[in-house]
Amino acid sequence: MTVIRSKQNPIISPQDVSASNNEWEVIGVFNAGVTKYKDEVILMLRVAERPINDNPDIYLTPFYEASSNRMTIRTIAKTPECDFSDVRVIKTPEKNYLTSISHLRVARSSDGIRFKIDDKPTILPGTMYESYGIEDPRITRIEDTYYMTYSAISEYGICTGMMTTKDFVTFYREGNVFHPDNKDVVLFPRQVRGKYYALHRPSCSHYGKPEMWIAESSDLRQWGNHRHLANVREGYWDDGRIGASAIPFEIEEGWLEIYHGANKDNHYCLGALLLDKNEPWKVIARSETPFMQPEEVFEVEGFFGNVIFPCGVLVENDIVKIYYGASDTCVGYAETSLDHIRANLQVQSANRPTMR
């Protein structure tokens, strides 16, 4: 079995989601966290929207104003002093802004393909650290509580926030668990030798690169003992950046982490890491080539093309069910076998990636 995409793809598109109000439009629904709750598949969708704008000479950039607890719109003229080369970001001499703002919205399904999407936002930006939006949730169930990490975007940088829920109706903000700039945080679903573990991706400094780290905690809120886990690989498919995608899950050989990697041209694909079951900071094996990459039109073309980006998978009867964002526009669904991913792995020498 290779990768089999759903014939219904994309399974969720922007036209399937209602905007927050009549003066806004949804431009993307993607990068959904996924889990099972009772008999349903739950997707926590990232919904990106923006004010409707009929004036070609300006941008309308939305943001959440925490002091007044309301959404606000800033007008930015299209002048030579501003950089509009990235469709996601407006760079002005003063600061950077996003061209849209994201909130989170629950979708439910009994068959994992056809989803009923909530009519209104489930979670809107709600703190000063979320003024540019909340993005890319990951959901880990630990006992009877669901822990959701997400990127909180603001002028202060990208923090990782956390919320908890037991029913996907009531959510509790637990604060920022990783300081800026840090994202792609996923929590392991159980303790390992008395510690909780999380994968994360700090921002790169003058010396470092956007690579994967691992941290540990006794309470899921205070994190320390940060260790470098996996690096980008020059000349490989993931030589630009890497980050955790799915919640790590256990197989016989260890912890399997499905991660995203991008090359220097921002072409996003999927690979896997096999981590030691008792010492998860050790990489046993890693994908030499991606086991899934953008191929279909909706994966290649869109708001930000050539991107497949999952924030979670479900594993049932050795089948890996992948819900992924495509081109920062819509949600796709695909299945593959554990054996297919295993065959894609290569044992690493001294727990470090082989370099060309």
Rank of each mutant, 00 (worst) to 15 (best):
residue 302 G to P: 00
residue 258 I to V: 10
residue 134 I to D: 02
residue 338 L to F: 07
residue 283 V to K: 05
residue 87 V to T: 07
residue 162 M to C: 08
residue 48 A to F: 05
residue 2 T to A: 06
residue 70 R to C: 13
residue 239 D to G: 08
residue 20 S to Y: 14
residue 316 E to L: 05
residue 350 A to M: 15
residue 194 G to F: 14
residue 213 W to K: 13
residue 90 I to E: 05
residue 124 L to A: 11
residue 42 I to V: 04
residue 209 K to S: 14
residue 222 Q to N: 14
residue 206 H to K: 14
residue 186 V to Q: 15
residue 184 D to T: 15
residue 352 R to E: 13
residue 307 V to Y: 00
residue 245 S to V: 01
residue 140 T to W: 08
residue 270 L to N: 05
residue 147 Y to S: 01
residue 323 Y to T: 12
residue 309 F to K: 02
residue 343 A to R: 15
residue 34 V to L: 03
residue 201 R to Y: 06
residue 61 T to I: 14
residue 264 K to G: 00
residue 159 C to Y: 07
residue 131 S to P: 05
residue 339 D to E: 15
residue 137 P to V: 09
residue 46 R to Y: 10
residue 30 F to N: 10
residue 144 D to E: 04
residue 37 Y to G: 09
residue 106 V to D: 08
residue 148 M to C: 01
residue 264 K to F: 09
residue 158 I to T: 04
residue 273 L to K: 07
residue 329 T to R: 14
residue 38 K to D: 04
residue 259 Y to L: 09
residue 163 M to E: 02
residue 95 K to Q: 03
residue 114 R to M: 11
residue 355 M to H: 14
residue 136 D to N: 04
residue 343 A to G: 15
residue 21 N to D: 11
residue 181 D to C: 12
residue 148 M to G: 01
residue 256 L to A: 00
residue 200 H to F: 15
residue 313 V to N: 01
residue 241 R to A: 02
residue 219 D to I: 11
residue 58 I to A: 11
residue 158 I to L: 03
residue 65 E to P: 14
residue 278 N to M: 06
residue 56 P to D: 03
residue 229 L to F: 12
residue 313 V to Y: 02
residue 113 I to R: 00
residue 175 G to N: 10
residue 263 N to V: 02
residue 304 F to A: 10
residue 313 V to S: 06
residue 224 G to C: 06
residue 204 C to R: 06
residue 287 S to E: 02
residue 171 F to I: 01
residue 274 L to P: 03
residue 214 I to P: 08
residue 195 K to N: 14
residue 32 A to V: 13
residue 171 F to H: 07
residue 355 M to R: 15
residue 255 W to R: 10
residue 327 S to T: 09
residue 239 D to K: 01
residue 207 Y to R: 12
residue 273 L to H: 08
residue 301 E to A: 08
residue 161 G to S: 06
residue 108 R to K: 14
residue 132 Y to W: 08
residue 137 P to R: 04
residue 125 P to G: 11
residue 264 K to R: 13
residue 56 P to Y: 02
residue 351 N to S: 15
residue 12 I to M: 07
residue 226 H to Q: 13
residue 180 P to N: 04
residue 275 L to P: 07
residue 65 E to M: 10
residue 23 E to Q: 03
residue 326 A to K: 12
residue 18 S to F: 05
residue 210 P to S: 07
residue 18 S to V: 04
residue 150 Y to W: 04
residue 146 Y to N: 03
residue 232 V to T: 06
residue 221 R to Y: 14
residue 258 I to P: 05
residue 141 R to C: 03
residue 85 S to P: 15
residue 306 N to V: 06
residue 325 G to M: 13
residue 40 E to Y: 09
residue 143 E to H: 02
residue 264 K to N: 09
residue 196 Y to N: 14
residue 240 G to F: 02
residue 254 G to A: 09
residue 343 A to Y: 14
residue 216 E to W: 08
residue 330 C to Y: 04
residue 335 E to P: 03
residue 241 R to E: 00
residue 328 D to E: 10
residue 31 N to D: 12
residue 45 L to H: 06
residue 227 R to F: 02
residue 236 Y to F: 12
residue 128 M to D: 03
residue 42 I to C: 00
residue 196 Y to V: 13
residue 65 E to N: 14
residue 289 T to R: 02
residue 139 I to L: 05
residue 293 Q to D: 01
residue 81 E to V: 07
residue 23 E to I: 02
residue 31 N to T: 12
